[in-house]
Computed example of a mutant assay.
Amino acid sequence: MDRRNFLRGAVVGSGAVALGFTMTPESIAYPAQTGPSPYGPLQAADANGIMLPSGFTSRVIARSTQTVSGTGHVWHSAPDGGACFADGTGWIYVSNAEMGSGAGGVSALKFNSSGTITNAYTILSGTTRNCAGGATPWNTWLSCEETTGGFVYETDPFGNNAAVRRGAMGRFKHEAAACDPDRKVIYLTEDEGDGAFYRFVPTTWGNLGSGTLQVLTESGGTLAWVTVPDPDGSPTATRNQVANTKRFNGGEGCYYRGGTCFFTTKGDNRVWAYDAAANTLVIAYDDSLTQNPPLTGVDNITGDVSHGDLYVAEDGGNMEICIITPDDIVAPFLRITGQSSSEICGPAFNPAGNRLYFSSQRGTSGSSSGGITYEVTGPFRA
């Protein structure tokens, strides 16, 4: 038995016994293993200091504390989570500002059909440590405060409507959100060393003004969703209110597709796959179970438009965005050089799937005022 099959067998065994997971046919291949990227090896760094596969190019679209070209808007410091939204023949990219003490918020970049920036503007301000978030099917951006007692804010990427605080979604150290339109719920991660994995069930799908916050529990190897008695989290934190709450070491990015919610935990460098239909949980990637792991500092996660690849950004590591393919190969897709004191945030594809946006939160300076937001264009596979 080769190392790849041995590692997979070990995860199946520990999943059934030590971790209490139920394996599904689709997950037998997990966890992903090191292999060649479908895009080939990384080339030498370009003029922006980014190593990319052959055929791909990068450009800088915004820099923290500087005016966005062609607009009057000054780009925010510490750019973090982000997402893209269709806007006629163009699109909009939104980006959080992970700044403390009421200096956080969200800004937006508007592009026309050729990719030229036509506008930039603020859609949320006065909040604290807006880290990651998630897009909704009704074209709003959920911006999450990564602070004790933090809120989720629903914002309008188009800049027409004021942001709304969604208190029913709970107060805790929010990280990311992912909408599941099939079950009409929203999954939420928590950035605590003993954090939980939540879902919010709106009273009416499409209206987040009221609903039920639930937490994932595990008892006797069975997973269940249990209502959190006090979503306000005071005096008892939401993660400590329900018996048998399933613990996760530093919840980070969250991404839903085709019945599965993929989410990451930075404390153990894992990517998890929650099969919502089967109510099962498996480890899709674990750097300690992967030979010569290219992906460490696991953080934000997104997926391409149509092929099924996952893209996971690193907080630290080699400053890479790594790809995890549907056949469970993990490999670097890009690497930012000369910015070892930063982290990669906010990966998101435009609606056509041929442009990838992301930020280096602290850029070359290592300071929140040195953030750089990029676009990568190239032959992404359809």
Rank of each mutant, 00 (worst) to 15 (best):
G82C: 11
V60M: 12
S58C: 03
G82Y: 06
G72K: 10
S64G: 12
A62I: 00
M51D: 07
S64E: 04
I61L: 06
P53I: 06
A62M: 04
V60N: 10
M51G: 08
I61K: 00
A62R: 04
G70N: 04
V74A: 12
W75F: 15
F56A: 00
W75G: 01
T67Q: 12
T57W: 11
P53K: 06
G72H: 10
T57D: 13
T71M: 03
T67F: 06
V60W: 08
A78H: 13
T71C: 03
A78P: 06
G72C: 06
G70V: 00
P79G: 09
A62N: 01
L52M: 08
S54H: 13
Q66M: 07
T57A: 14
R59P: 03
P79Q: 11
T71R: 06
A62Y: 03
T71V: 09
W75M: 13
R59Y: 08
S54D: 15
G82S: 12
T65G: 11
V74T: 14
H76E: 15
R63K: 13
S64W: 04
A62L: 02
A62T: 01
V74H: 04
S54F: 12
H73P: 01
H73I: 03
T71Y: 10
S58G: 05
S77E: 14
S54G: 10
V60D: 07
S77L: 08
T67L: 03
V60G: 08
W75D: 03
F56W: 10
S64P: 02
S69T: 13
P53C: 07
G70P: 01
Q66C: 00
A78S: 15
F56D: 04
S77M: 14
M51A: 14
S64D: 05
S69W: 02
S54Q: 15
V68R: 02
R63C: 02
L52V: 01
P53S: 09
T57E: 15
A78G: 09
V74Y: 02
T71I: 07
L52F: 07
T67N: 01
S54R: 14
G70R: 05
H73Y: 15
R59V: 09
P53G: 06
P53D: 08
G81Y: 11
